[in-house]
Nucleic acid binder design. Structure first.
Lengths: 125, 125
DNA sequence: ATAGATGCAAAGGGTTTGCACTTGA
DNA sequence: TCAAGTGCAAACCCTTTGCATCTAT
């Protein structure tokens, strides 16, 4: 990650302008508008390095392809609305996660997904 | 799913005896102890049908291959070991999950994944 | 007997890698 | 200049599919 190439500029720009996490193929399509000869291998190599430096954060939803978004948000989880499909960010964590880990195991990270109905989708009562 | 073949008996038995969700490759390895000529294609075809009938429940970890466990178990979550790749079942839940849901939202389900190092993979102290 | 089931191998789809060429510094 | 970076294609890995063979009923 030493040189500032046109390909890397394009990939970073596409990710910065995106309003949602992008898949490698989406990054490729977007960045080719700026550097037409861009190859998929360069996209993978670049996002791997960007994720390594912490500039990019992987967004992995169960059963879906891996996506990436520009990092910088604080630790959070996600709430998926089964009515509208929107995904909300939820700050905070359960206090007693460690309690659930068996003796001898060490927890290094966790991921939580909530499913339900969001406020806007709730019928007014 | 009309015939009771040796291959299907072996696949079901391996899944019944497992205490954790198994990947297709793990199922293949286990079932080959019972039917040595078993092919991976049969494993995929069988788990697809077993999942369709509800006998198997898919366990989808973010960014990992799909696994399967026999359905009907009580509520639990999963721990993924980053060293050996095995996935363990973990009973219990955080007590204060509802606290994290914003007002106006209703939580209907949740999914939690733990990542770390499992007991067997820990260096002896 | 015969349609369902299997095993093999080939085909797909997504990701990674080897290598010669290109290019930023 | 010259090593980091790139593009292409081949290699990989996992999963699905085509097809001839096998087998439970």
């Amino acid at each position: 990650m030493q040189r500032d190439t046109a390909q890397r500029r394009a990939i970073r720009q596409v990710l910065l302008e995106a309003k949602r996490p992008l898949s490698p193929q989406e990054i490729l399509a977007g960045a080719r508008a700026l550097t037409p000869n861009l190859g998929i291998a360069t996209v993978y190599r670049t996002i791997k390095e960007l994720a390594g430096t912490g500039w990019l954060a992987p967004v992995e939803l169960p059963g879906e392809a891996q996506r990436f978004e520009v990092a910088g948000k604080s630790h959070h989880h996600h709430f998926s609305c089964r009515v509208c499909g929107r995904v909300y960010q939820m700050d905070g964590c359960p206090a007693d996660l460690e309690r659930l880990v068996p003796a001898g195991f060490s927890m290094e990270a966790h991921e939580i997904f909530f499913y339900g109905v969001c406020g806007p989708c709730h019928p007014k009562r």
